[in-house]
Design a protein around this nucleic acid. Structure first.
Lengths: 234, 234
DNA sequence: GTAAAATTATACGCCATTGTCTAAAACGTC
DNA sequence: GACGTTTTAGACAATGGCGTATAATTTTAC
């Protein structure tokens, strides 16, 4: 039992800078290779080559392949969570131009959280390796899609309270909003392709149009009273 | 260059029977292992063990691992296509009880085509290995989801023509129908889990309810004329 | 029963990969 | 410039999987 020298703990000064850069480079390259080849198909040598780093350096930072994999997933998850939080905080608050604002929100959600690199990575890896790492998967599920639906549900609740939407089950509406937003992009998402801005825009518009046909303008059909007054309550 | 003895081509009589059974056993087991481990992670030995077959027998039927993989994918695709065709031919034709019939249809679609073994296999494998086998992937895309949307679009067109639905873009509506049907099951689908009958029923009901809120009862709002006469045109 | 074909068990060579080790080189700090 | 740390390159054994070869055994056809 020799005294391990704790490689990345000392950081007496700027030494941390270089190590941190290496670490990030390794994490990024590993994410790339793991995403393309899967866990079993990815080789440490290839990751090292992509990262422009010696193989030994990788083993210096991460004990074994599995350690590296877990670190990569956690890293991507953190980025994805931060991005999701940012996008969620841009959910429309006012009720005029609701269609346009919801459409823009759906574009942001798809572009920055679902169709981006991290989204593709997480979907692919969780699906393929999730059963082998239940803890990782569960964590992603809760902090990713779980958070998304919970937050959307609450936000729709606020819009409904304002009278801008007529929703009976907010959770269902939240899931349907996301599902509708992906409807036109399903194939591209499954493929891992990146939609153009026009495709994103059109997909979101189709989704929101249908969503509002189903949930827009509160009980106007049932009671028949115009809901315009609701716009004043904001 | 010796005269290869063409193992499974002669079939002078019942020889084919036993071979066919072995082949199916190999294909099924290989599908199982490939689905769990991916192409790179799957080992011929494990496939042989699951199939209760000697490894040599596998190499006797399929030249190499890749040949086996392609054969497995094609086999599953054929089954899935047949099932999809069967389900599509049960699309509701009458316009009364449309909600119930569409719901039952959505249940069948999800249960037999999307959440079943073959659906899970194809989604997972196409996503992970699709880029390495573009031909396989393209074939699946056209005959699977492509056919589904095309057929659904045409079927919605007929219902709209009958006056039971008010749809402007049939293709979009078809994609949205599928997306809504999956909305409540997204996580389970990504996980590869199998929903219970109740979950299937509830998911389909939520989906169809929203779908009909958006597309049900034709231009009644715009023109206000009852569309019942359209039911005679069938 | 016999002959042909298929299957099995086993061993083998080959190659890629993992993870370790060591000495040399590069880097950053003082 | 000296020193400690990190990185690098290369070699290394061990492992495991792929694909082949061979002989024995079973199955099937007639």
């Amino acid at each position: 039992m020799k005294d391990r020298m704790t490689p990345a703990v000392r950081m007496t000064g700027h030494t941390q800078r270089g190590q941190c850069a290496k670490r990030m480079s390794i994490l990024d390259s590993a994410a790339d290779v793991f995403c393309r080849q899967g866990f079993a198909g990815a080789s440490i040598d290839e990751i090292a080559a992509v990262a422009c780093v010696s193989r030994q350096t990788i083993y210096n930072h991460y004990r074994e392949k599995e350690t590296l994999f877990v670190a990569v997933v956690e890293d991507v998850m953190n980025r994805a969570n931060a991005m999701l939080f940012s996008v969620l905080s841009s959910f429309p608050d006012s009720t005029d131009d609701l269609e346009d604002e919801l459409t823009a929100f759906a574009v942001r959600l798809n572009k920055n959280c679902i169709c981006n690199h991290d989204g593709k990575f997480l979907r692919k890896l969780v699906q393929t390796e999730g059963e082998r790492y239940p803890h990782l998967f569960e964590s992603w599920r809760q902090q990713g899609p779980g958070k998304l639906i919970t937050a959307l549900s609450a936000l729709f609740g606020r819009l409904a309270h304002k009278g801008a939407l007529a929703i009976d089950d907010f959770d269902v509406a939240a899931r349907q909003f996301v599902a509708l937003g992906n409807a036109d992009l399903q194939m591209m998402i499954l493929l891992g392709g990146t939609p153009t801005d026009e495709e994103l825009e059109k997909a979101a518009r189709n989704a929101v149009r249908t969503f509002l046909k189903a949930y827009g303008r509160p009980a106007a059909e049932k009671a028949g009273h115009p809901p315009q007054f609701a716009a004043m309550s904001g």
